[in-house]
Computed example of a mutant assay.
Amino acid sequence: MILIYMLLVALALTLPLLLAFRRPRNLSERREAAMALHRAQLAELERDLAEGRISETEHEGAKLEIERRLLAADSMPTQATGGSAKLLLIVTMIALPVGGFALYLPGSTPGVPSEPHAQWQAQQAAQDKQLDKLISLLRAHLTVTDPSSSDASEGQAYLAEALTEKAGSITPEALSLFKQSLANAPKGSNWRELDQQRILQAKEEGLR
């Protein structure tokens, strides 16, 4: 009887996957914002190299990482996928708990070795280090830039976006920077749209 309960619980835990049927909002805007951020980061790196703020080695390492993220952002879909994958998702929702339940049957547990995570952890640490370095470069740039200039506005926007990427959500500091950036952002600038989107997102999330 307990095995039946376990199967029912496993099925119930897969129900959140139904959220995948919801149509994502502002997916194309997210793609454009991410690409604009990474292009600005590349431009900032070139300026810092030209001004001697960073070495050639640091420049190459940071450039490769930003280009990788730019390619990843460019591969994001511009619209929601159609319904052709819904059947596969439904089958997966059923197969996963049933397959997991089957592992508890007598004699069915395979001897699978643990997955090594050392390489993944090293890559993640390298990405975090590059992001921290970029944040430091942007902060340093803003300290020598006229706060009311469009250059400062751009730097504030991309520093705020980098802080958001690091935290996984819009932080109070990032929101403050987005607002400062918007105050001096020229009309038609890429980062002005980014500022507006992030400020609106923060309001929807209850961040003031």
Score class of each variant (00 low, 15 high):
residue 143 T to A: 12
residue 136 S to K: 14
residue 96 L to M: 06
residue 155 G to F: 02
residue 78 T to H: 09
residue 107 G to S: 15
residue 127 Q to N: 14
residue 147 P to C: 00
residue 163 L to F: 04
residue 76 M to E: 05
residue 87 L to P: 01
residue 161 E to N: 14
residue 142 L to M: 07
residue 82 G to T: 00
residue 107 G to K: 11
residue 100 G to F: 02
residue 73 A to V: 00
residue 63 K to F: 05
residue 68 R to M: 07
residue 128 D to S: 15
residue 132 D to P: 03
residue 112 V to C: 05
residue 80 A to F: 08
residue 105 L to G: 13
residue 118 A to S: 12
residue 79 Q to P: 08
residue 66 I to T: 01
residue 92 T to L: 15
residue 134 L to C: 03
residue 86 K to E: 06
residue 124 Q to C: 10
residue 126 A to P: 05
residue 140 A to Y: 01
residue 158 Y to H: 10
residue 80 A to M: 02
residue 137 L to M: 13
residue 70 L to N: 04
residue 148 S to W: 05
residue 83 G to W: 11
residue 67 E to H: 09
residue 102 A to S: 15
residue 130 Q to K: 08
residue 63 K to A: 09
residue 117 H to C: 09
residue 135 I to K: 02
residue 131 L to K: 12
residue 86 K to D: 11
residue 106 P to H: 02
residue 80 A to H: 09
residue 73 A to G: 05
residue 129 K to L: 13
residue 118 A to F: 12
residue 64 L to S: 13
residue 80 A to P: 07
residue 107 G to N: 14
residue 153 S to G: 09
residue 141 H to T: 12
residue 132 D to I: 03
residue 103 L to S: 04
residue 98 V to D: 01
residue 73 A to M: 04
residue 112 V to S: 11
residue 132 D to W: 07
residue 116 P to G: 03
residue 119 Q to E: 13
residue 130 Q to E: 08
residue 133 K to G: 15
residue 162 A to M: 00
residue 123 Q to D: 11
residue 146 D to V: 06
residue 143 T to I: 10
residue 142 L to P: 03
residue 136 S to T: 13
residue 72 A to W: 01
